[in-house]
Design a protein around this nucleic acid. Structure first.
Lengths: 223, 223
DNA sequence: GTCTATACCCTGATAGAC
DNA sequence: GTCTATCAGGGTATAGAC
């Protein structure tokens, strides 16, 4: 379950990240983390003075996974800025489910659970979302004249992030990727309409979409 | 803090609903609920055999609040279907903050926290979201020719719900209504573009938007 | 229906040998 | 850095008088 040849510290973090995502922070006991990470109480408190310190490490870990598993590959793979955005969404989609189970956004759960009780963590999470939004905003700027000049790139970027997280919630509740696909399809439609505004009907649409995004989706409510 | 002339059962439910929203389900102890509701352990377990039974009651309570505080007033107040949708969003906006504090969606937190550990509750929450989506879908149908005939009303309705929940997350994380307002503004823009498709540039826009929706919003990331 | 007192377990965290 | 043993406290839930 846990990759070998890793340090105990790493195992504790990756194990905790998975458990927090599945069960939540409060409902995951230190004992369970220790057990599933093949560690001991002594090791745990050697690395992390308190459970909350592990939480901070987990949040940073999630941010790193986003970077190495989503943003970096998307930048490498995509042919143009708009395509890169939808590639990001497609890679994010893959992160939503592990081993056949669908747990929704890795960050949304922590965000709601933690924001009131651990202000420090809340600020960190907000920073990560802002960073994410900023990256998308940058891509929207690079799209240049393919989007209306009057378009508020900042607002649209935030909207993309907001959509993703909302879709992640539907995904988790319905234990299906259909809600996510449906949301991305709508976002795609929005982008198309924005492109229409500035000339030909395919200014944005020609960028292409990853297959999973354009594929037909089932009814969210029938899962 | 708690309305007088209520039954103990009602006080326990409303108090728990508020605490669950603020702190989460797992991080709210039965003792705290009892204390803030001016009840006793005996009363609590007389009405609710276990904490989880209270949770179910709280979920139903939230659904009722949505009905009486959002959907019913919106239906009464709105002049046409599209306007009614944005009135719903505006009323929802008001529910996002209580007493000056912004806690985000009442249901999103429970959804993520509870979906894995309490399948029964998860199904109930999914039903409520589906009901919500269905109501909006019905309004989209009633909008008739003001939206493109080819438009998938079901998908768009789900998208509206998804947007709301995603925006609620941003609202909570940033402790500001700005992310919500920004998201609704984008949604409004999307509706406008959809309206453009079928004739005059104001087919949808003329429906008007509640003031809070059209007001300028600050940058999400600068709160 | 409501009260007080309490059982019992699991939690996060510590101590000290190795 | 890792181990075992253990603590103190708060968690849910119960018992039984009123």
């Amino acid at each position: 379950m846990v990759p070998r040849k890793t340090t105990t510290r790493e195992r504790l973090i990756t194990t905790a990240a998975e458990l927090f995502r599945r069960q939540g922070y409060a409902q995951t006991g230190v004992n369970q983390i220790i057990q599933e990470a093949n560690a001991t109480s002594g090791s745990f408190y050697h690395f992390f003075p308190a459970k909350e310190d592990l939480l901070l490490a987990v949040v940073d870990h999630i941010a790193e996974v986003f970077e190495s598993g989503i943003f970096a590959p998307a930048a490498e793979r995509a042919s143009d800025p708009i395509d890169e955005i939808f590639t990001i969404l497609d890679l994010y989609r893959q992160q939503l489910s592990t081993e056949g189970f669908t747990f929704g956004s890795p960050m949304a759960g922590l965000s709601t659970e933690v924001s009131e009780n651990h202000p420090q963590v809340r600020v960190r999470l907000a920073e990560i979302f802002a960073d994410w939004s900023g990256r998308i905003e940058e891509l929207l700027r690079r799209a240049g004249s393919r989007l209306p000049p009057s378009l508020d790139r900042t607002a649209l970027a935030q909207f993309v992030v907001c959509t993703i997280e909302g879709a992640g919630l539907g995904t988790r509740l319905n234990q299906s990727l259909a809600p996510f696909d449906a949301a991305i399809a709508q976002l795609s439609s929005y982008f198309d309409l924005l492109g229409d505004r500035i000339g030909g009907t395919t200014a944005v649409a020609t960028a292409g979409r990853p297959a999973s995004v354009t594929s037909p989706v089932s009814d969210w409510r029938s899962w």
